[in-house]
């Protein structure tokens, strides 16, 4: 049985904004019955470009229905420009998180939104931009995989499958997915790093802890605190579940240090201090 949050259950059992808008200004349809989930999103947008109403129809599991409902809640009252910036992670966050195998439900919502906004702007479906199909089983393109990897910082084929379904069928595309992951992740590494002042470095470390590291630790009931930065030594203290977790040393070395080296400075070394 899936561990759904109360918010997922609430929006599944009593979904908000289910249905279609008859004279919609933008409609986006994604997924298919063969894939196991599908979403039709319709938007009512006023002359000022503000989304007055958003409605959904979903074929899918509880988290697909809840994600679609969450998306419509997020959209109402936003301008088209603001709506265009909504990421799948925001949909998942609105729900208090989704099981990792179900993250593709939030991606489905984001894709439907993109299509509905393109439809509103009167843009034709962009075949070229949609890219080439990598996963034949679920009809997932290289562009969709790239986007998911980039926006969610995915590193493994399994993660890509959880977010996009790509690779979840016959598995023959796993090598192609691996190539896409390394390509996208290579792009993310800036070629030359400008010299950083100490203050800039500390700020960037704090930012990385907040945005990249803490959310992952919090999923397991843990937390982390920055104690000090001495040269390239980053002194950290584990909190919550991490403080008593036997694997925390591994987490510190592999995950925390890896992230800081990747996003701040390759020379950084983390040290755990007990306070």
């Amino acid at each position: 049985m899936w561990e759904y949050t109360d918010k997922v259950k609430e929006l599944f059992l009593n979904p908000k904004n289910a249905g279609v808008i008859e004279d919609a200004d933008g409609v986006g349809e994604v997924g298919s019955m063969a894939c196991g989930d599908a979403l039709k999103l319709s938007l009512k947008i006023n002359d000022e470009g503000v989304i007055e109403d958003a409605r959904f129809q979903t074929f899918g599991c509880a988290s697909a229905i809840a994600s679609a409902s969450a998306l419509t809640e997020l959209l109402k009252g936003k301008t088209v420009e603001e709506a265009g910036k909504i990421t799948n992670q925001e949909i998942a966050d609105y729900l208090g998180g989704l099981p990792k195998e179900k993250m593709h439900c939030s991606v489905l919502g984001q894709q439907a939104l993109e299509k509905a906004l393109a439809d509103y702007r009167g843009e034709p479906p962009k075949q070229e931009e949609e890219g080439e199909v990598v996963c034949e089983c679920f009809g997932v393109t290289d562009r969709q995989i790239e986007k998911a990897v980039r926006e969610n910082n995915l590193a493994t084929v399994e993660e890509v499958t959880n977010y996009t379904k790509a690779g979840g069928g016959c598995e023959s595309c796993h090598d192609s997915i691996r190539e896409i992951i390394s390509r996208v992740r290579a792009e993310k590494q800036p070629k030359t790093r400008p010299r950083m002042s100490n203050i800039q470095k500390i700020r960037l470390i704090e930012e990385t802890l907040e945005n990249e590291i803490r959310p992952a630790l919090k999923q397991d009931g843990g937390d982390i605190e920055l104690v000090d930065v001495i040269g390239n030594r980053v002194l950290l203290s584990m909190r919550g579940a991490c403080a008593v977790c036997k694997a925390s040393e591994q987490t510190m070395k592999n995950f925390v240090e890896g992230k800081l080296q990747e996003l701040v400075l390759p020379e950084l070394v983390v040290e755990e201090v007990r306070t």
Partner: peptide, 11 residues
């Protein structure tokens, strides 16, 4: 026997 129930992506 649905896909979503099992966590696999195919029924």
């Amino acid at each position: 026997g649905s896909a979503c129930t099992s966590g696999s992506l195919q029924p």
